[in-house]
Write a protein that binds this DNA or RNA. Structure first.
Lengths: 144, 144
DNA sequence: AGTCGTTCATTGATGCAGTCAAACAAAGAC
DNA sequence: GTCTTTGTTTGACTGCATCAATGAACGACT
């Protein structure tokens, strides 16, 4: 196990919890403003780098593949996404963002940069500090 | 509006998004390990400081009151929470954690301190730095 | 060739979270 | 003593999530 429950760690954990909740809420709101749910927005965001098999989407979001079927169904019904056959394996369906989907996703991403108010409180040097600390945390989280 | 989309801000936003997702997932998992959903755990956590009216729970979590009815129903069915009459206003029902509820909530909170791995990557001085930065962000987010 | 086990996506059943509109009781105001 | 407002609940509905089972295609192996 590891970290003792010193007051400093406790406070950082609580602060993170607060900010996590703020960021999470802002993300949901930004998605809702475009009539997307949070889950739909996440999938759409994943497709920015290119089409992906259903399986891989499920894996990335750590949920059941059957779950993705429904989310993609709804996105497809709105013309934001399309299922295409994979030429190399006829079992897999690759999900690709349509032009409308790309646009919605880009728009959402843009809006987040402005919506994320808490960052505005920090100056450039502080952001650099924060970035370095977050990088270390993210790296260690990724390696588990 | 405000922040320009300089690369530094962009990177910090992306890092925050990553860590938000990691923390969020760990929270859900810690709750699930105790057969609680995330929403149930949040309500239980809110009650640590004492009983609260339904209305105020809804307000704090920014959702509809009717939503809280269901969550409290399920918590109550498991004996983690109890509805009590408010002596000063017969319309309101105050929700209080039972002893089992307190225990579950405390246990969950404990487990979080150990589960939150990313923090382990930082030494004490860095945590202090991080705490200061997060404090400023949290303050500015709270004042909106 | 044909069979066996595996993998990908879907379907159906189920539970929880969330919204909205409508109901009802109690409180407060006039 | 009506009238309005407030706190909670109910019912109908949508979406997210899980699990179990199905079916199609792949891969390996004899």
């Amino acid at each position: 196990m590891s970290q003792p429950q010193d007051p400093l760690t406790l406070e950082v954990v609580d602060l993170m919890a607060t900010l996590v909740s703020v960021f999470h809420k802002e993300y949901e709101e930004a998605a809702a403003a475009r009539s997307l749910t949070g889950a739909q927005a996440k999938v759409l965001a994943l497709l920015r780098r290119g089409p992906l098999p259903m399986r891989q989407i499920a894996q990335t979001l750590s949920c059941e593949p059957s779950n993705i079927t429904g989310i993609v169904d709804r996105l497809e019904a709105r013309g934001l996404v399309a299922r295409q056959a994979d030429p190399e394996d006829r079992r897999v369906k690759r999900v690709a963002a349509t032009e409308a989907g790309e646009a919605a996703s880009a728009e959402l991403r843009e809006s987040l940069h402005f919506a994320r108010a808490p960052l505005a409180a920090l100056g450039p040097e502080e952001r650099t500090q924060l970035r370095d600390l977050l990088r270390r945390m993210a790296d260690s989280a990724g390696q588990r």
